[in-house]
């Protein structure tokens, strides 16, 4: 048995000298001092932001309005007040040429949860949030996106991909990687498509419902087997979960167009053999087989 595994390490040792651009969040709504505080409350709720920079009409940085400013305003029952009354000013900010480590130092030194990033004209172009920094560093340090290629026996290739729950940013990556690996083999496009749908839906199920899991594909000359196994809540009534339209996904997931109760039925429809095994409080295992239209050599 031979085995080789590649650990994805996209970032290398000099990640800390990256520009803050890599970690900043763009498309931050432009808030001006004459906005009312109740608009800030809505903005923070809808965009799930804990602070936004305040600018003049041309986009130059004036201050910042954070969740703690909002709390004071709500305590004062003063939501009709303009942002200018509650915003924090002057505000610390980063210029675009600063590096990641400088951003980390500033945030840690002043215990800031967020720092606006400005260009040379002092116009806001993004915000570094503690969570965007955290997400970047976690990804950099994480070796869990392990892609393992194994050859368990003669004529069989197997790939395994790790999937992390609630990680919507990287959602679809495992099945995309899988598809790319399969594209190198001479598989009929129809089979590739069915396998792709099975893998994607199975991956999304893990992301939506479980803490973590893995996606495995095994290919031999006649068939492709896809196994998705997770550590998660499990399904209490599998036959109900198999009904089209039945879902337990929360609203924010459904807003993204997932969790419509079509995942498992979609997987079944595209599989020649379909098995599901779930235990409440333990996890779920979905096994699918796609019989190949053309045998592989």
């Amino acid at each position: 048995m031979t085995m080789d595994s590649e650990v994805t390490n996209k970032l290398g040792p000099d990640i800390l000298s990256y520009s803050v651009e890599k970690v900043m969040v763009r498309n931050i709504p432009q808030v001006t001092p004459y906005w009312q505080m109740r608009h800030i409350k809505e903005l923070m709720r809808i965009r799930r932001l804990d602070g936004v920079p305040v600018t003049d009409d041309e986009g130059h940085l004036l201050g910042i309005i954070s969740i703690s400013d909002l709390i004071i305003c709500i305590e004062n029952k003063d939501l009709e007040a303009p942002v200018s009354k509650y915003m924090t000013t002057p505000v610390k900010c980063l210029i675009l040429s600063k590096t990641l480590i400088e951003a980390l130092r500033e945030m840690n030194r002043f215990k800031y949860g967020r720092l606006p990033v400005v260009d040379e004209e002092f116009k806001v172009i993004g915000v570094v949030y503690w969570w965007s920094l955290f997400a970047f560093l976690q990804e950099a340090l994480d070796t869990s996106m392990v892609v393992k290629k194994t050859i368990p026996s003669e004529g069989v290739i197997s790939y395994t991909y790790q999937v992390l729950g609630r990680d919507f940013v990287h959602a679809g990556n495992a099945s995309l990687q899988m598809r790319k690996s399969l594209q190198q083999l001479s598989i009929d496009p129809k089979d590739l498509r069915r396998t792709g749908i099975i893998a994607y839906e199975a991956e999304m199920n893990i992301i939506i419902h479980a803490d973590k899991g893995f996606l495995q594909v095994k290919i031999n000359s006649e068939k492709i087997e896809v196994t998705a196994e997770d550590k998660g809540p499990g399904i209490s009534d599998v036959s109900l979960a198999m009904q089209e339209g039945f879902t337990t996904a929360p609203d924010y997931i459904r807003e993204m167009g997932f969790g419509a109760g079509m995942g498992l039925p979609n997987i079944k429809r595209n599989s020649d053999i379909f098995q599901i095994d779930s235990r409440v409080g333990v996890g779920t295992k979905v096994y699918s087989v796609v019989n190949l239209i053309r045998r592989l050599k």
Binding site: F168, A171, I197, E201, M256, G257, F258, P265, N266
Partner: peptide, 21 residues
């Protein structure tokens, strides 16, 4: 999921979803 189950190759897909997926 509906798109995945029903789209045909070469279709135009009209949507208001704009995220990565």
């Amino acid at each position: 999921s509906y798109v995945m189950g029903n789209a045909k190759e070469g279709d135009l897909w009209l949507t208001i979803q704009t995220h990565m997926n």
